[in-house]
Nucleic acid binder design. Structure first.
Lengths: 341, 341
DNA sequence: ACTCGTGATGTTAGCGATAACAGAACCGGA
DNA sequence: TCCGGTTCTGTTATCGCTAACATCACGAGT
């Protein structure tokens, strides 16, 4: 017999009625508008509390044109890199008072990324972060909805959008130089899949160092980031044991595969072959032997990308495109040693 | 000199004007309402295409009371388990035509989870998935907004909400039984942190098997899921090498730490000590030795939780609480062997 | 010829908030 | 005392869409 059998959540007007003010005053209290008498404010606050009122951000977004939601398009957030990046993005966004809506693509291609961006645009996000590590995905950024603030992460892209990424080339140089400094004649490379920009950057840095030092540049072995592909590459490399003394592997998971293959083939690391990985996943320190690697600060990448994006959103117009580069860090552990003579 | 210097995105009325129909007819076309003449439909579609119109889901949500967005509250989505679960949730949600808004907590406690749920509720999500592997977080589910469809994942909870999870107890039994079957006198256990429900379930299963077999139940060593904590536990265990012949470790990352510690201490796996892990992360197969472990199908957990949640949303009312259990799977590899006599 | 049902379309009224403007109360200074 | 300017509060319009109802044309049934 209660007057409201229909358990409708309270709206601003209900609060206003209970507090004996207009709904606009309630709105003012909620938005910290200065011109509200302290006594009125507390009365409103009390009413809000009493009714368990929560503001409806959908209605608010409709009139303000701002949803305080950011869209993130990513690829396979199961992988350590994307997962960490997205985590960093989400943390930074929330600290800035934004929500994050995520679309995680199974396969990545221009159409898929475009669809995702379209959905997010319909949903009214204020800006979009595209974690686009692949060339095909990066291209999708060319046809963003006009005026939509956006930033690409880990996607090298010379075009119409700001980019935040770890300096892959530099990281690869660090790894390769380290190995050369240890006295190795040359360094082999197990790379990531061809379409990935990160894979390309790492090849580039590796090749640059070898070339600059006048060393022979061995053929690249190509993996797919998985430990299994590293394992296969490891078997190949083990078969050439005499020739190969140093390998730069494009990520830590593949490096684990190499380690396993070498163990099976009786190749000792680092005595016979030195290995450097890339990423510094939490496991690397406990591989056997602990892996020398290049750390990527994914958290920083996430934070910086939100900074760039919010700057665009706040300015309200198209800013010149930024290019933020996060430096990689060399981590020395036990998988590398002076070349055997 | 263009008439619309102000580049406002087109709205339904613009489309209607161009197509020479009312905005309501445009709405009908967009929502696949049957009563629209084919010729009219194509005309509208053409106008939509011509203007590059996208519907405003915020306005739609305001009137329909459905945002077609689901909220996900999780903890540290950098970890393999949560990351995979969230990925599965996102995929399943999108297949069902829902967006996913994510809040990733840094530290997990009742207040934090409550805040997150509150934010999502304001944002107008149609339902909430809480990945609540800790007791403190699971309790937050008791004060969900009334009428909000919700499901807990990996959180054992006897209360007022549906739960989807992998059968931790069963997994632990599988692991422990395997070790006993191999002839080990008893099995030691390195567990996860105390507050975690999964850690508790694994202890429970392990203890149950030992007790049922009338074996001594050693003290539990407690870790924090990290490889480093496993490493520490490994050092302790290595010091008791003679007594310890089999260890069930609560996750694969800690198992890696044990492996490393044992390698350093010259303890051979599986010759001297057998190890079983939990999770089956992609790396486990390439540990040295490859790790025998218990696989959790996180993708299935994500899918099932969305099924349960959508069922609640679609029914429009409070359904009886479900308890969905996803079976774990035993994966035999090379880190376990028959007990030395 | 006159209903009546049905399909196709248009008109109107909100959804729940904020923006913009309007009005009331109160202040100090001439 | 009166006036102009702050402060505080209320009223109205609006965001872009869908729901509900109204309207109109048309063909079938009597």
């Amino acid at each position: 017999m209660s007057p409201n059998v229909e358990r409708r959540p309270p709206v601003m007007a209900d609060v206003a009625r209970l507090a004996g003010v207009s709904h606009q005053t309630v709105s003012r209290v909620l938005n910290d508008h200065p011109n509200v008498r302290a006594e009125t404010r507390t009365r409103v606050l009390k009413a809000i509390d009493q009714l368990g009122y929560r503001r409806n951000l959908v209605a608010r977004a409709l009139v303000t044109k701002h949803s305080r939601t950011l869209g993130v398009v990513s690829f396979d957030t199961t992988l350590y890199g994307p997962a960490s990046t997205v985590y960093g993005i989400e943390q930074a966004a929330r600290d800035a008072g934004y929500f994050v809506s995520i679309v995680s693509l199974r396969t990545i291609d221009r159409a898929g990324v475009n669809d995702a961006i379209g959905y997010l645009a319909e949903q009214g996000v204020d800006g979009i972060v595209v974690v686009a590590p692949q060339r095909s995905a990066a291209r999708a950024l060319d046809d963003l909805p006009a005026g939509m603030p956006a930033v690409a992460v880990e996607g090298w892209h010379k075009g119409e959008v700001s980019v935040v990424s770890v300096d892959q080339v530099e990281g690869a140089k660090l790894a390769t130089s380290h190995l050369l400094d240890l006295g190795h004649e040359t360094v082999w490379h197990v790379s990531g899949p061809a379409d990935w920009l990160e894979a390309e950057g790492r090849i580039e840095g590796w090749r640059a160092v070898l070339t600059a030092a006048g060393r022979p540049v061995p053929d690249v072995l190509t993996g797919d980031w998985s430990p299994r592909s590293g394992y296969r590459a490891g078997k190949e490399l083990a078969a050439m044991a005499g020739d190969v003394t140093a390998v730069f592997v494009a990520n830590d998971q593949m490096a684990l595969g190499l380690l396993r293959a070498f163990t099976e083939e009786g190749v000792k690391v680092p005595e016979q072959i030195s290995i450097v990985g890339f990423d510094d996943i939490p496991e690397s320190e406990f591989f056997s032997p602990p892996l020398t690697t290049i750390r990527q600060d994914f958290g920083a990448v996430g934070r910086r990308s939100i900074e760039v994006l919010l700057r665009q959103i706040d300015s309200g117009e198209a800013l010149p495109h930024e290019r933020v580069v996060v430096p990689p860090q060399f981590v020395l552990r036990a998988s590398t040693a002076v070349a055997a003579r």
